[in-house]
């Protein structure tokens, strides 16, 4: 075992330790920064979920935020004075995910025979329909005023009230979601999705039911969106239709594209960039959106494949760590 291997192992350990230390230091930041980090984590969860559909299966879903809305309103209706129902957070988390998945299947079942842009526009319409329905169903959702005063959440007796609490919850959930999606990506299912993205006729020719595959991608991503929505509801303790506009759907798609389609590391990078950028641009006052747009177009034109190269993905990092640890002679 040469010195260089030890040096590299130490280097690797240092990088890992740095990541852990940085993540552990977040709670000690001022509340504003913790909120920004929370926001990044929520968008990571959403974008990793949507990436199942857009990045792996190659279906453009422009109405993803509808599932997020379903989750958020599940919490708002089941844990507030609206109908005086007060279910525990963890129960609603599962209800929200299930409701999201059901909404995904309900949308997916009739429309998945559509292809390409037609699918995109139908998902877009679905998202708008959900938002307008929420906006107008006054008896159920209070319409545009939204539902305020949602219950303070708690998990296994631990309170979930401050941004720091949610930071830990979101961090754990983000790791679970990324891990789960990574596992799926490497399974036979992930391979089938990628084949579907490349050429759906060949997939069908091989005797694989493409509709089931697409439905599965839709349902899983919608479940992740629903769970994200429940946390959003518990975090804000206020929901209104304004949070679920078409622009929000586009933002999640944007995160995926800016980071690198179908790449979890890319999605994380994209979420960081697109959440932090508007915050950084606060100094520019009314020029903020203008600069944001210019930066966006410039980044896309200069790096059309996304900020993170497709080679640099979760699998690559795990392989690197493993070979350096188990059989350093190979590296």
């Amino acid at each position: 075992m040469g010195n260089s291997v030890i040096a590299r192992r130490l280097g690797l350990l240092a990088v890992l330790a740095l990541c852990v230390v940085l993540l552990a230091l977040v709670p000690y930041l001022p509340s504003y920064y913790v909120r920004v980090v929370d926001s990044i984590l929520i968008y990571i969860i959403l974008a990793v979920g949507l990436n199942l559909v857009v990045g792996y299966a190659g279906l453009l879903d422009l109405g993803f935020i509808a599932f997020y809305a379903v989750g958020a309103y599940a919490y708002a209706l089941l844990a507030s004075g609206q109908f005086d129902i007060h279910l525990p957070f963890i129960v609603i988390l599962f209800i929200g995910a299930a409701a999201g998945a059901i909404a995904g299947v309900l949308l997916g079942f009739p429309v998945l025979k559509l292809r390409g842009d037609y699918l995109a526009i139908v998902t877009l319409s679905f998202g708008e329909i959900i938002r307008i329905a929420i906006n107008n169903a006054d008896d159920l959702t209070n319409g545009p005023q939204g539902i305020a005063g949602l219950d303070r959440a708690s998990l296994f007796g631990l309170p979930l009230t401050t941004p720091v609490h949610f930071y830990w919850l979101l961090l754990v959930l983000a790791i679970i979601v990324c891990g789960g999606v990574y596992y799926m990506e490497r399974s036979i299912l992930g391979k089938a999705w990628r084949a579907l993205r490349e050429d759906q006729d060949v997939v069908r020719g091989l005797g694989i039911n493409t509709t089931t595959l697409k439905l599965l991608a839709f349902a899983l991503s919608a479940a992740i969106g629903g769970a994200g929505g429940v946390i959003f509801g518990a975090f804000q303790r206020f929901v209104s239709p304004e949070s679920f506009t078409f622009q929000e759907s586009l933002l999640v798609v944007l995160i995926i594209i800016i980071g690198g389609v179908g790449n979890i590391v890319g999605v994380i990078a994209g979420a960081v960039v697109l959440v932090v950028l508007p915050e950084v641009l606060h100094f520019a006052a009314q020029y903020r959106l203008l600069i944001y747009g210019v930066v966006l177009v410039t980044v896309i034109v200069l790096r059309p494949g996304g900020l993170v190269s497709p080679r640099f993905n979760l699998g690559f990092i795990i392989r690197k760590v493993r070979t350096l640890w188990l059989s350093p002679s190979k590296t």
Binding site: L250, V253, L254, I257, I258, L289, L290, Y292, G293, V294, L296, V297, I300, V301
Partner: peptide, 10 residues
């Protein structure tokens, strides 16, 4: 498509 979206914001 996303570049178009950026242009729209601009």
């Amino acid at each position: 498509m996303l570049s178009a979206l950026g242009m729209s914001i601009v």
